[in-house]
Every structure is written in structure tokens, then in C-alpha cells.
Design a protein around this nucleic acid. Structure first.
Lengths: 342, 342
DNA sequence: CTGAAAGCGCTTACAG
DNA sequence: CTGAAAGCGCTTACAG
């Protein structure tokens, strides 16, 4: 009735590689090889080991493997939000790129907070990740230092970096902001408001692009900008549309820094009986699904978010393998979707 | 110039607990205690260890800890989708409940696929999780067996379980489907169509509730049901609205199994000049933000998804600690949001 | 193609 | 309150 191990044992009670090896009549390291580098093991031995695995229901212990091999097979991903469809698409791209490899994703939600980013990175670094995927180019001093110290390859997503050694996959948020403003100016609008929320790095770059275009056209007017730090929501877009109109009664177009805000603004116009684009043009950013379906359909910027995640993760995998990729700044571009609303 | 360790060393080169201990002039296990059970260590020793940690930039190795303690501090979370706002809200609730504890979330996206769920669970079980959070009540035979074998506490989210020993947090999808159908019937609609997509467990239970209500009212008619396996999107809702009208020309109301579909259906009505609810009532499920803001505003079911994640994670933590919670079936209810569209 | 030994970095009993 | 020893389950050099 007595078990093999004594009562003082710290064994987990689970099937170990050693047990599999014993069952197959080989050494533990041969069993290890049969599973991880099958080509180095003779066919009959491999089959016996595989049989033992199946019969015993062996589940490898990832912690032990990580400790012994000094390789975690973990990739850390930090996104600023999960409720923003842009970043869930990025995550799907990453998941698909990682696919059926043995990498495990550690997904952190920084909530657009530097403090939270520091905390998460500190915790995730304990898992000794093989690589890190970040959603912005600039970070707090502490995060920058942690990244430098840990010596783990990093790829930044969404915008294009300019710092030396920085690896980035995305598109120029500045150019996209500029292009949208140009589109509105080209349509003849002159009093073009900019509604920005959250004020994260990307929104600020889009605002910069807008300003440049307005300035180039001699239309720049600081009163046309409405910037708030709250998270972007439809409700906020509805509210800010009202404030914009109070603030700039002669406003003839509104460039919202994302589609949630633009949708809210348009719903607000519908409630107030303001014709879009007749009385007021409204445009957004990101081309969320509703933008193509609403009445009026929404003019916006199509962004390759899934692709960004996919390419960033692919690039990171190359870096982890020690490869030197030909390009370390991948511009995936954007598309101006000119529709009915502006 | 020579380093302490020989060239044959497999050491990672990182600062270890032993180094911290040496720096502080204590044993490794005292250093370990100072960090993990500070109350058991004298104040001066604790301070010396903390100083050493700071000076050396020590980062604990989670794999080593997991291996030695047989405790991973990992919680596995499986959701069927990341593009569905319902599940990102669930995730946010979980993240908040786990908060600043030392738990690490391993988030898997099963894409509504049993095969994917099996694969992910198999991989995640290698991390020896302390607990598992699932998004449905029923699973493939293999998954059910894996869950039973691994002996890890499991909490199911979204719907309410009935199987013995099953721990669940959610609300009755059946009752909610019934309530919405009753609402429409109470408004005098008699030819109420049901549009279902994805056909996951939750959608099927809502459909069951709808059928019961229709049957109770003597209005059941199988031709009123339009069920497709594709993922729910606005575009699909728009398409299915058309097919429903072709299929059942005298249809006077449509119950969409979720808001994405309902929004698409309403946008389609707007394009075709069909008055909602004048000619056709449309309602949805989940109360996504746009539902309150669209014109017409959308009648739907408000669901406590954030709360489900929060409570499920809290309950799981109790189970992990070995506590026996008073309730193992937490009904968080739902709210019928009667608005303009139905 | 296969194996005996050592070690990854931590924590667990057990003593004192 | 503190420590010497052993061990968690795997993989890495090194031999043969």
C-alpha cells in the first residue's frame, strides 16, 4: 500500500519525465530528447517514449524546463486597453503570428497608465521573457531603464520609431492625422475642430498632424482644439460635440481622434437635428465596423491593426532567434476611407 | 578580471537570491523569508535584505519559485473571443479582482472552437495553474477529462450551472431570452423572429428561452428562426435582417441574439427605409454602448459582464486558498433595457 | 544514438 | 528569529 516516495517528499505527485523514462526503459535525458529533439533519437525509442507519455498522461512542467534551459518561451505583450477594439485586433494578430509555436503570451493591460506599465513590466520580468511587445514608443524613465537592463528584445507597435536601435511596426500617426485634415480642407471646410481624448501618444501625434495641415493652409486656430484626458467613449464623443459647438459656433467640421468619439458626435447630431455632413462634417479614426454601416457612413482612417500585431510578433520571433532582420521599422500604412460624413 | 563562475557555468548571469543574501550577510533562506514572509524576520535583517535587493537590482525568478514551491501563482482564463466586447469586459473584471496580488493571468482565446480550447488547455496545464476560469458550462469530452484529471479548481462564467460540484458565476441565459421574448409579446408583436449567430452555448440558451416564451403564448413557429454558425458582426446582422424579411414577410419584430447583430439589422432598416419600430421592432442583447445612443435607441438586455469576471475571479481565489465558499452558483441577474427600438 | 552527473534558482521541512 | 541541506523537474554540457 505504501507509495514509492516517503511522506517527507516534496514531490508534486504528478507524472515526471523520469517516470516516463522508466516506463519506456530509457534515461530521462533520452526521454527529454525524444520529446524535444525527436530527430536525435532512434525511431523505436521515440515510439516507446511517446507511448509512455500517452499511457501515463505525462504533462511537462514548464517551470522546470524554463529553469533548466534558461529559456521561458514567454512573450510579454503590453496594451493600454482591452475595451478598445484596436488593441484586441492587435492581440489577435499577435496570437495568430505566435500560432502553434510553444510561445506563451503574457498579456498585460496598462490602462494608459505609466505607473501600471511599470508595475506590470516588473512582475512580468520575473518570468524571464524571451521577448517584449509594447504599444507605444516612449515610456517612463523607469520602464526605459528596466527594458535596457533586462536585455530582452523589444518591438514597439502602432507608430514608427526614430530612435536608434528601436524596432517598430505600425504607421505614421502624424501622417494619418495630416492626411485626414488635408481631406477636410480639400473639401472646402475651414473651421475644422479637433476632438481628442485620452491624450495618449498616438492621439497627440494625430493632433500634431492636424495642426501641421491647418497651419500649412493658414487655418490654424487653437480655439478649434478640444482635448480631454478621459477615455474615449461614445458618450464622451456626444458630450464633446456639444462643447465644441458651444466653444466654436462657426465650426463646420470636426475631426475626432477616433471612431468611438466620432460615432458619439454623430449620434448627438442626430438627436439635435444637426445634418451631417450638411451642417457639420464629422470624421473619425480607425474604421471600426459601425463606421461603414451607420447613416451617414463615417469618413475615417483605416488602420492595419491586426497586421501590426502579426508583423510585430513575427519580427520579434526573428529577433529572439538572434536573426538580424533586414528592416527594423516596418511601415504598414493607413487608408483614408472617404465616406458620407465628411 | 575573471568572473566568479567558470566558463562551463550554466548560470544565467542574473542576480540571484544567493547573491542578495551574500550582499546582506544572511543565508539565502533568510533572504527568501525577508521577501516573502517579512513578519518572520527581524526588522534590521529585513532592511538589509531590502537594501541589497535595491542595490543589486534583484529580480526574482518565477520559474524557480514555482518549481520549488509547487505553486505557480498562475490563473488560466479561457474566453471564446477578444473582439466581442462582452469578454473584454469580463477580462477587465478578472484583472481588477486579481489586482495587485501575485497572480499572473494566462489568457487564452479559444475562438469558439473546441479543438482550440483543448490545445490551449493542454499548453496552459504545463504551467501548473492554481486555478482556471472558463467561459462556458459544457466542454468537449477531452477538456472535461483534462479538467478532472488536473485537480485544479475551476469556475465557469456567463451562465449558471446545474451539474453537481460545478461552480458558476453569471445569469440565466435562458431566463434572459425568455424575458426579452415576453417583452415583445407584451408589446403586442406576434410574428417575432429570432436571429442567432455563432451558435455558442449562450446563444442557444437564449434561443431556448425565446422558444419557451413563444410556445407559452401560442406563437411558436420554426420558420421565425434564423440561425447561422458565422461569428456575429454588424455586417452579418445587416445581411440576416434581409434574409429574415425574405423568409417571413409578415415578421413584425426581430430578436437578435446580441447587439452587434441588432445594430446591423437597424442600420439595414435605415438603408431600406424600414421604420423601426414602426414597421419592424428590433431588439438585441448585452447593451453595448451604442445601443443607448443610436437613433432609435436599442431595446436590449443589460448584462453584468464586468461583475461576472470580478466575482468569478474572487470566488476562484477563495477556492484556491482551500476555502469552502457559501455559494457555488452566483446569479448576477440581467436587466431588460426597454428603449425605442422595440 | 544514448547516458551519468551536475546544475538552473528558489523553497521546504527540520533544527536550533 | 536564523541556517545547512535537500529537493522541485527538467536540460545542459560532456562522454562514449
Amino acid at each position: 500500500m505504501s507509495k514509492t516516495s516517503s511522506n517527507k517528499s516534496r514531490a508534486s505527485g504528478k507524472i515526471t519525465l523520469a517516470a516516463v523514462a522508466a516506463h519506456a526503459g530509457v534515461s530521462a535525458m533520452t526521454a527529454s530528447r525524444a520529446l524535444n529533439q525527436p530527430a536525435l533519437v532512434s525511431a523505436p525509442v521515440r515510439e516507446r517514449v511517446e507511448l509512455a507519455v500517452a499511457e501515463l498522461g505525462y504533462v511537462p512542467n514548464r517551470a522546470a524546463r524554463a529553469l533548466a534551459s534558461a529559456q521561458s518561451n514567454v512573450i510579454v505583450v503590453l496594451v493600454p486597453s482591452l475595451s478598445n477594439a484596436v488593441f484586441t485586433a492587435v492581440l489577435e494578430g499577435i496570437q495568430d503570428a505566435v500560432g502553434s509555436s510553444n510561445y506563451q503570451l503574457l498579456i498585460g493591460n496598462t490602462r494608459y497608465s505609466d505607473a501600471e506599465e511599470e508595475k506590470l513590466l516588473g512582475i512580468y520580468l520575473q518570468s524571464n521573457p524571451d521577448g517584449i511587445l509594447l504599444s507605444s514608443l516612449s515610456h517612463s524613465a523607469r520602464v526605459t531603464q528596466m527594458l535596457a537592463t533586462c536585455g530582452v528584445p523589444v518591438v514597439s507597435m502602432m507608430d514608427l520609431g526614430s530612435a536608434p536601435g528601436q524596432v517598430s511596426v505600425g504607421f505614421s500617426q502624424f501622417d494619418a492625422g495630416y492626411a485626414m485634415a488635408r481631406h477636410l480642407i480639400g473639401k472646402g471646410y475651414t473651421r475644422i475642430g479637433f476632438i481628442g481624448a485620452q491624450l495618449d501618444e498616438r492621439t497627440l501625434r494625430r493632433a500634431d498632424g492636424y495642426r501641421k495641415a491647418m497651419s500649412d493652409a493658414g487655418l490654424l486656430d487653437a480655439r478649434l482644439e478640444l482635448m480631454v484626458g478621459e477615455p474615449s467613449t461614445i458618450a464622451l464623443g456626444a458630450e464633446l460635440l456639444g462643447r465644441m459647438l458651444d466653444q466654436v459656433p462657426d465650426c463646420d467640421a470636426v475631426f475626432c481622434c477616433n471612431d468611438d468619439l466620432a460615432h458619439g458626435a454623430i449620434y448627438q447630431c442626430q438627436r439635435r437635428g444637426i445634418a451631417v455632413p450638411g451642417q457639420l462634417a464629422v470624421c473619425g479614426f480607425n474604421d471600426l465596423p459601425a463606421s461603414a454601416w451607420m447613416t451617414p457612413s463615417v469618413t475615417t482612417i483605416g488602420t492595419p491593426r491586426y497586421q501590426i500585431g502579426f508583423e510585430a510578433a513575427s519580427l520579434l520571433r526573428a529577433l529572439i532567434k538572434g536573426e538580424t532582420p533586414p528592416v527594423t521599422r516596418i511601415d504598414l500604412g493607413f487608408t483614408l476611407m472617404a465616406r458620407e460624413s465628411a
